[in-house]
């Protein structure tokens, strides 16, 4: 069903490869520029997306040859919030169930992925995960302050 309050949206499909993460960052940056979103918000979303994608590529799809899995991205801008959805058809992987590394834990003890998840939780307002059939569907939500 069409949402009358959705003002802009974009999709991108990438594969599980390190270079693709940069392509996703550029795509998101272009979308935010088109929507005239502040640079600081763009940077926050790009960091959050990088953490999510690197988590999928390096952990959820660990052992999968590069380029063998598709990851679909969709960004939706509404009047007062923005949603960034990441779906993949890899094994069940719920990053919201992982425990982020607590602040001020010794650096040497930091698990890869733990700090990234901490960043995501800091940078967005809500994280939703559902296992939709054979699909992992992660949605990052960010409220937009000061928009009409």
């Amino acid at each position: 069903m069409d949402d009358p309050f959705k003002v802009l949206a974009s999709r991108l499909t990438i594969v599980n490869a390190r270079s693709e993460v940069e392509r996703a960052a550029v795509w998101l940056g272009n979308f935010c520029a088109q929507a005239a979103l502040p640079e600081d918000l763009t940077a926050r979303l790009q960091v959050a997306l990088d953490e999510v994608l690197s988590n999928i590529v390096n952990h959820a799809l660990a052992g999968t040859p590069e380029g063998h899995r598709k990851i679909r991205l969709q960004v939706r801008l509404y009047t007062s919030n923005l949603e960034l959805e990441v779906t993949d058809d890899g094994p069940f992987f719920d990053p919201t169930g992982q425990r982020p590394v607590p602040q001020a834990t010794r650096a040497a003890e930091h698990r890869e992925g733990g700090v990234g998840l901490l960043f995501v939780r800091t940078l967005v307002d809500e994280i939703r995960f559902v296992r939709d059939g054979e699909i992992n569907r992660l949605t990052l939500c960010k409220r937009l302050v000061g928009r009409p």
Partner: peptide, 17 residues
């Protein structure tokens, strides 16, 4: 620097060690 993700922070931690 525009921004740095956790991958960059891990570089700095390795470099410092």
């Amino acid at each position: 620097l525009d921004h740095m993700t956790s991958a960059g922070f891990r570089c700095l931690l390795r470099a410092e060690k």
